[in-house]
């Protein structure tokens, strides 16, 4: 690919690939969240529509998972700060 494109095009393609990879990362996270939240929320036998509460459970599941990950980061930071203070 290196000699197929001039400098400007190479740069443009590098940016393109970077943007696509960010998109792919997002999609991978959505796949993994869907899998996890499906297991947590979908308890009924699949029918022609979601059972009561399943839809809102899916949305809540995503929100609470993200809350959890923010909370965990904060906890780790606080632990680290406390350790530094008592040193």
């Amino acid at each position: 690919m290196a000699d197929q494109f001039d400098e400007a095009t190479r740069k443009e393609l590098a940016n393109f690939v970077q943007a696509e990879q960010a998109q792919a990362h997002l999609t991978a996270q959505i796949h993994s969240l869907t899998s996890m939240c499906w297991d947590k929320c979908i308890t009924s036998n699949p029918s022609s529509r979601f059972a009561r509460g399943e839809e809102s459970c899916l949305a809540n599941c995503v929100e609470r998972f993200l809350d959890t990950s923010l909370y965990m980061v904060k906890q780790i930071q606080e632990q680290r700060d406390r350790a530094q203070l008592s040193r």
């Binding site: 997002l26 869907t34 499906w38 929320c41 899916l58 949305a59 599941c61 995503v62 929100e63």
Partner: peptide
């Protein structure tokens, strides 16, 4: 459908 809900929420 679940994939779409998760995707939209996320």
């Amino acid at each position: 459908e679940a994939f779409n809900i998760v995707s939209k929420t996320y």
